[in-house]
Nucleic acid binder design. Structure first.
Lengths: 142, 142
DNA sequence: TATTGTTATACTCTATAACTATA
DNA sequence: TATAGTTATAGAGTATAACAATA
């Protein structure tokens, strides 16, 4: 008898991520957010960005794509862009109170969502999963 | 001292899947394919579809989205659509020789890609990863 | 000239609502 | 009326190339 071939890791990864990200995006949308907006807010609240290009790298998108999202977020009153006095080529991004409030709402969504993802797994399994996912992501960078 | 908070599972999953799917899509594009085209070809070659709606479900997209991809694939000469004689509401999809050749080329890409994904992991780790990813995907369906 | 970010443009994937063809 | 699939339309996210502002 032949063993059934294992389902490819890439297909399993894509399926798990697709279903997860759809549900997560729906939950964020109910609060007026989206995945890219959440990732940008998360990166901004973590701080440490000198330039938008660094922010784009952290979010995993290109410069014009970041500009696109920043435009939407600025129109929504979540942030302000000002040129830095010492080097006016650099735009400094500041979250408004509205932006910070949005961050906290979306963080609530993200925490609730992650709790749901973690349910049914032991801590040891979650640690193993984190380790495996980090190694997978790191592999791609090369 | 506080322990550093664990990075959310959802974020790690999204990162791993994003980097993986980009590289995979690039590799498929070099052969004239794409991820949705590959998934449709894979489902068609597995067979067992009576209706397009079942095919759409298997690929994880809606009917009109499937129609969109089938249009492109038919224009590219990969398949033909004909009405079933016994129930002319149903369209039967048949892969052409070109379509089957594309399937085999893209399967080669997928197998090479998955081999790369698997490298650096032990068989026990891969089994664990498959199990964890399947449980994650199953959870979302509920 | 080099750097930072934006504008202009376009493409892919996806979806919902309305429609046609068939039963 | 109900079902299978398509057409019409739209929207989100992404990207590349060309550009403007600044250094």
């Amino acid at each position: 008898m032949m063993e059934p071939a294992h389902t490819p890791i890439g297909l399993l990864l894509a399926r798990a991520a697709k279903t997860a990200s759809r549900a997560f995006d729906d939950a964020l949308a109910a609060e007026g957010g989206s995945i890219p907006v959440w990732l940008v807010l998360l990166a901004l609240m973590r701080g440490g960005h000198r330039m938008q290009s660094e922010l784009a790298d952290e979010v995993g998108i290109q410069g014009p794509t970041l500009t696109h999202h920043l435009n939407g977020m600025e129109n929504a009153g979540l942030l302000l862009r000002q040129r830095a006095p010492d080097n006016r080529r650099i735009h400094r991004i500041e979250l408004t109170d509205t932006g910070r409030a949005m961050f906290h709402r979306l963080r609530g969504v993200a925490m609730a969502y992650d709790a749901r993802l973690r349910s049914g797994f032991t801590e040891a399994e979650l640690d193993m999963l984190r380790n495996l996912l980090e190694r997978l992501a790191a592999k791609q960078a090369s």
